[in-house]
Nucleic acid binder design. Structure first.
Length: 184
DNA sequence: CAATAGATCATCT
DNA sequence: GATGATCTATTGC
């Protein structure tokens, strides 16, 4: 994966990430659900209006990981993706597990069916062992990375985002139609 | 099955 | 000291 793959409009990257593979060591899975967060003109984005130390990464190098702790106990995994000069990230909401199922179950301490192991932002990070340590990691290469989609992943659906209080109506959520691993 | 309360902490004001 | 891009367990019908 090259830098310029991530350095184009955030929405476009959010769509292109569907069908790509998320890898962390021997654990891997297909990305089936994403959301775009734009630094400009998006009230629900952390970086909107306030450009601070934490949100500085929104304007940083494409392909870096932005890991955020929400509600005190859940980590959320994002990838920096934006057109040159703009700022934005893509939230990875759900993954269809491919390999390392037993490790995922062990980390999550539950015996869920495969499609549920990573069907949600916080579940995903639990299953993949993602924590704040990985904030700022380069996902273009290395042990913790994203690999491009191999074949046509299927029909892509677009709709409103989930679990936010502002700008709910913006259709910046993308997922694969009919995929059982997509969160509700 | 649908609704809801509670957990818990890094970051910013 | 307020806030939040969630999940799970527990209620009540």
């Amino acid at each position: 994966m090259r830098v310029d793959w991530f350095e184009r409009p955030t929405e476009e990257v959010a769509r292109a990430l569907l069908g790509a593979t998320l890898v962390h060591g021997r654990v891997s899975g297909t990305i089936v659900e994403t959301e775009a967060y734009l630094a400009e003109d998006d009230p629900s984005c952390h970086a909107c209006g306030r450009r601070t130390r934490r949100t500085e990464i929104f304007w940083g190098e494409g392909g870096l990981a932005y890991v955020y702790l929400c509600y005190g106990l859940h980590w959320c995994l994002n990838v920096v993706a934006h057109a040159p000069g703009a700022g934005g990230v893509v939230l990875l909401r759900a993954v269809m597990p491919i390999a390392g199922l037993e490790l995922m179950r062990k980390r999550r301490r539950r015996d869920d069916p495969a499609v549920r192991l990573a069907s949600g932002p916080a579940r995903l990070t639990q299953a993949f062992g993602v924590t704040g340590r990985l904030n700022g990691a380069d996902m273009k290469t290395g042990d913790f990375r994203i690999e491009p989609a191999g074949r046509n992943p299927g029909r892509i659906v677009r709709g409103p985002r989930i679990g936010i209080s502002k700008a709910k109506e913006l259709p910046l959520r993308f997922w694969l139609a009919g995929n059982g691993a997509v969160s509700r």
